[in-house]
Write a protein that binds this DNA or RNA. Structure first.
Length: 801
RNA sequence: GCGGCUGUGGCGGAAUUGGCAGACGCGCUAGACUUAGGAUCUAGUGUCAUUGACGUGGGGGUUCAAGUCCCUUCAGCCGCACCA
């Protein structure tokens, strides 16, 4: 039978739409299953071939789960605020709203052409005021709970986007998006206290079914370290506090270093004799971009603070204090004790400035190289610590510091608070008003959503102000508290705001009283399976876990974690094995593939391309294999007989295939699931007939992968009911087994022959059978069997002498 | 530098987790059908050698048995990076 995919696919896409086949409601008679894929940013380029890999995978899971009796929520929406849209709008003089609408239209039709089983009645859009009302509402709750605060601080500033960037958005000192230089600017910014959740964000990973590399990457990003806080007295009287992970090496501290921004410089500006030189160094450091700062990392620079020294609390020794940009103000206390013998950076600095290097952990050659091994080594030159191991010394020194009141154990995190302001137009307005009298005042919830106004120009400004700042009618307002004159916040939220909670909105997308009803949240939470890209591990995934934990704390959501399971797909590369990009000229347009081969073939190919979790190069000629397979599936109609029940020849193969496909879907092994169906169809053609029962099983197994053709065949074969909710086939473990198996006979580990034996034959039986085999017996002639190893159903290995 | 991952035919990739390496697909070779084929079908396809040997980046080890475990080394990819 001919396979007219164009007609078939159109027909069933229309059928699913007309019947709202995938629409779900709360149904307590069924177990629920919430499958989620990262909603796309509707860019002007349209869908990338990478998108369908993730969407098809969870579509397969969703379709299989529906057939297995689950009430499945598989939603889709648009993460539509963001810079590219705004930049396109500026360039082409179209309102970002219009650009967004057009892009969404295109994306939506592309997704529909793939036959994905989304519940479109739950479609959401982060730029819709009825959506961002609740994004703003969550921000207000954070503000009220002290988690959103405004702070004058040194921020990352992209010189091209003209916008502040979060630490997570700076890559190698460049803007993640446009790769322009990132410089530092002191600006007043809205911040979110993600650091308050650092420990819980680490701890709660333990109970989650996330792939390991996601857990590891999040833990590394949060960067917990344990050490001690130590307060050094100074010759100027006051104290200088440092953080160290190696308090055991305190006797080896021969100098101290403060970061260029450290406030002690202001404090002692009249005591520091070379203050001009110090301020000059600070100025130079500030002028460097992040990129230069890391680029120049090899060569240490610094200036000594003349006229002020630190005093080592364990031995009273006076040690010099330096200012250097290898110490960061944003970590720990912005000051360190330097132990050149046991820290590589301190060692380099000490060599350059000719400072003493005192060995306090034996085992290395500290004049030539810092010795940083903590596993072995004994304390030396360390007074009361001498002879102890590093671990013991740590405990003892902390005890000592606590007794003396000049230090204690301390935990530090690399994670910083989240810079939440953006100086751009196309984002959620921050619902805060500034009043001279009352300070920062939250908008009353009744005034939400605070609508993003139409402005004359949404060009970004060089002075670091949002385009909204130029709009007096928006800016000038009255204080909700005292009714006096006040000014609105004009920065907007970052793109990550709307996506930090969107999975909750899908549960109850049209609710105008709450972000979602208690009932819906209770029923659908948590997301059972969330698939998305590794690139979001330390951005969206971490941010949304943070928001969700906050919402849990204030009693809005019922679970402390949003996602029960997280998996990640590999990238689809260009045919040349490089990352697909316009500049490399290796971009494959999904529209072309669907046009030429059809959506089912496209879906199959994207799953068959390789291990789902690994990246794989696109190969247009390989698609043919999937197309041929579907044509062979269609042609099963030609050999279909009226018989019922599994035939003798195929029964075992069917049970094996059902088992394999069922298990592989759960395990993300879509490639081998398909391979097993290909093997089965090859067997069916060898036999050259298939009956009704077998056919039904086959197309049911294939339906999640290639739904259009299977629906068509379901109808052609005259099967009853809606295929979307057809019963998933079950396998019988006993029927996957053979009565007779072929086992390998090895001599000294090399295969020398094959034997067919009953599946549960014992060793002596097999040994006898082997001996009576002509070839084997000739090899055994004159030899003695020293040992025989028998693995049931697999092999017999004889060790001879 | 730190953390993580990968290395298997001409290509994409399988391998029940220590048990017959190369499933499945692409490509290729030969044949059939055909006015024709970039369609379809059939057979073959790791390498070398006429019986057998060698083969999972290299070297070593454990084991009756290693792609899988251990040590070592090389190559590539990704993430973080002066985090004290």
């Amino acid at each position: 039978m001919r396979y007219d995919f164009k007609q078939v696919e159109k027909k069933w896409q229309k059928y699913w739409d007309d019947n709202e086949s995938f629409k779900v409601e709360i149904d307590r008679t069924k177990p629920k299953f919430y499958a989620l894929v990262e909603f796309p940013y509707p860019s002007g380029q349209g869908l990338h071939v990478g998108h369908p890999r993730s969407y098809t995978a969870l579509d397969i899971v969703s379709r299989a789960k529906r057939m297995q009796g689950y009430n499945v929520l598989y939603p889709m929406g648009w993460d539509a605020f963001g810079l590219p849209t705004e930049n396109f709008a500026i360039k082409n003089k179209i309102h970002p709203k219009t650009v967004t609408e057009n892009n969404i239209k295109r994306f939506k039709s592309q997704l529909k052409a793939l036959g994905l089983s989304f519940d479109w009645s739950r479609e959401i859009n982060t730029t819709d005021p009825s959506y961002y009302k609740w994004t703003q509402w969550i921000f207000l709750q954070m503000f009220k709970h002290g988690l959103a605060y405004k702070k004058e601080m040194n921020v990352n500033w992209c010189t091209s986007c003209k916008v502040v960037l979060a630490n997570e958005e700076v890559v190698n000192g460049k803007c993640e998006r446009c790769h322009s230089d990132v410089i530092h600017k002191v600006k007043s910014q809205w911040m979110l206290k993600i650091t308050e959740y650092a420990q819980r964000l680490i701890d709660d990973l333990d109970d989650l079914d996330f792939i390991d590399r996601v857990k590891i990457q999040q833990k590394n990003w949060i960067g917990r370290s344990t050490g001690a806080s130590v307060r050094f007295k100074t010759t100027a009287g006051s104290q200088l506090e440092v953080y160290t992970t190696r308090p055991d090496t305190l006797f080896g501290a021969t100098y101290m270093v403060i970061s260029p921004e450290h406030p002690i410089i202001e404090q002692y500006s009249d005591i520091i004799k070379n203050i001009d030189q110090v301020l000059e160094y600070r100025k130079t450091a500030a002028a460097k971009s992040d990129f230069e700062r890391t680029e120049l990392a090899k060569e240490k620079t610094g200036v000594r603070l003349e006229g002020i020294d630190g005093i080592n609390p364990v031995n009273g020794k006076q040690i010099p204090i330096y200012i250097s940009d290898y110490v960061l103000m944003s970590y720990g206390t912005g000051a360190i004790m330097a132990v050149p013998a046991h820290d590589t950076r301190d060692w380099e600095f000490a060599k350059k400035f000719d400072l003493p290097i005192i060995e306090v952990v034996a085992g290395g050659d500290v004049q030539n190289q810092a010795y940083t091994d903590v596993e072995t080594g004994t304390m030396v030159n360390s007074g009361f610590l001498n002879g102890l191991s590093v671990d013991e010394a740590k405990k003892k020194i902390i005890q000592y510091l606590e007794e003396k009141g000049c230090g204690e154990s301390k935990v530090n995190y690399k994670l910083r608070d989240w810079v939440f302001s953006r100086q751009r137009y196309w984002g959620e307005p921050i619902p805060i008003v500034y009043c001279e009298k009352c300070g920062y005042v939250p908008l009353p919830e009744s005034e939400l959503p605070l609508m993003l106004p139409d402005v004359d120009s949404y060009e970004p400004t060089d002075n670091g102000e949002s385009p909204l700042a130029a709009m007096d009618s928006f800016v000038n307002t009255t204080c909700p508290k005292c009714s006096g004159p006040a000014k609105r916040e004009t920065d907007t939220m970052p793109q990550w705001a709307g996506s930090s909670w969107y999975f909750l909105r899908y549960m109850d997308p049209h609710n105008d009283k709450e972000l979602a009803s208690k009932e819906a949240l209770e029923y659908w939470s948590p997301v059972d399976w969330y698939n998305g890209g590794m690139e979001h591990t330390t951005l969206h995934l971490l941010y949304s876990r943070f928001w969700h934990k906050f919402l849990y704390d204030i009693g809005v959501v019922p679970t402390k974690e949003p996602y029960a399971k997280r998996t990640s797909h590999g990238m689809i590369l260009g045919e040349n094995g490089e990352k697909m990009s316009k500049s490399r000229g290796n971009v494959i347009n999904p529209d072309d593939i669907i046009e030429q081969y059809g959506a089912d073939t496209m879906r199959l190919y994207e799953m068959f391309i390789g291990d789902f979790e690994k990246s794989a190069p696109w190969n247009t000629s390989s698609i043919k294999g999937c197309k041929r397979f579907l044509e062979r599936v269609m042609s099963l109609m030609d050999i279909l007989t009226e018989g019922q029940g599994y035939s003798k020849e195929l029964e075992r193969s069917f049970h094996i295939t059902i088992k394999k496909v069922t298990e592989d879907i759960e395990a993300l092994k879509f490639n081998t699931a398909l391979a097993s169906m290909m093997t089965l169809i090859n067997e069916i053609y060898d036999k050259n007939s298939i009956n009704k029962t077998e056919f039904k099983t086959f197309i049911t197994l294939l339906c999640p992968f290639a739904p259009h053709i299977c629906e068509e065949l379901w109808q052609l074969a005259g099967f009853e009911g809606d295929m979307t909710y057809a019963k998933w086939p079950v396998y019988d473990q006993n029927k996957t087994k053979l009565d007779q198996v072929e086992i390998a006979v090895q001599i000294m580990g090399k295969v020398k022959g094959k034997l067919t034996v009953p599946v549960d034959a014992d060793e002596s039986f097999v040994l006898e059978a082997a001996k009576s085999n002509e070839r084997i017996s000739s090899l055994l002639e004159g030899k003695q069997i020293v040992k025989s190893i028998y693995v049931k159903g697999k092999l017999l290995n004889l060790v001879i002498r």
